[in-house]
């Protein structure tokens, strides 16, 4: 497996996954026309990583704006991660957002509420 690195665009976030540290960073804005198409390889990569690695995985989200398709994909991803944690994987999600970004905070809170096992931290910048 190789490190995953995607440069950010106007409508897609920058994605940086460092194998060694096990940190996946998703940073920027996310409103691609076809969100599923954009995130499929990223989620595939996460699945592949979790299959092969026993290391702790940290997902850091720092998303300023995301559309509803993206939020639905994130929800799916968190559901999957929850199952993985149940299987014994060590995963942490850090949801980073600006104190004033109530939309992001609200989403973060909702995601957190839905997760029983997955450690979901809302981190204010």
């Amino acid at each position: 497996m190789e490190n995953l690195k995607l440069d950010g665009t106007k409508s897609t976030p920058e994605i940086n996954f460092d194998l060694e540290s096990g940190i996946l960073q998703i940073k920027g804005e996310s409103f691609p026309e076809n969100a599923a198409k954009f995130y499929t390889p990223v989620i595939g990569w996460i699945k592949e990583y979790l299959k092969n690695s026993t290391k702790e995985m940290v997902l850091e989200f720092e998303i300023l704006y995301f559309n509803s398709s993206t939020s639905k994909i994130f929800m799916t991803l968190f559901d999957f991660l929850e199952k993985e944690v149940k299987k014994g994987k060590k995963i942490i999600v850090n949801w980073k957002c600006d104190k004033e970004n109530e939309t992001a905070i609200e989403f973060g809170e909702e995601f957190k509420e839905d997760m029983d096992l997955l450690p979901f931290n809302i981190v204010f910048l």
């Binding site: 300023l64 970004n101 939309t103």
Partner: peptide, 15 residues
Amino acid sequence: TDQPGGSKGLPYGKS
């Protein structure tokens, strides 16, 4: 409510 703007580029927000 989600439209970014202002000085920080943050969403407009519900408040």
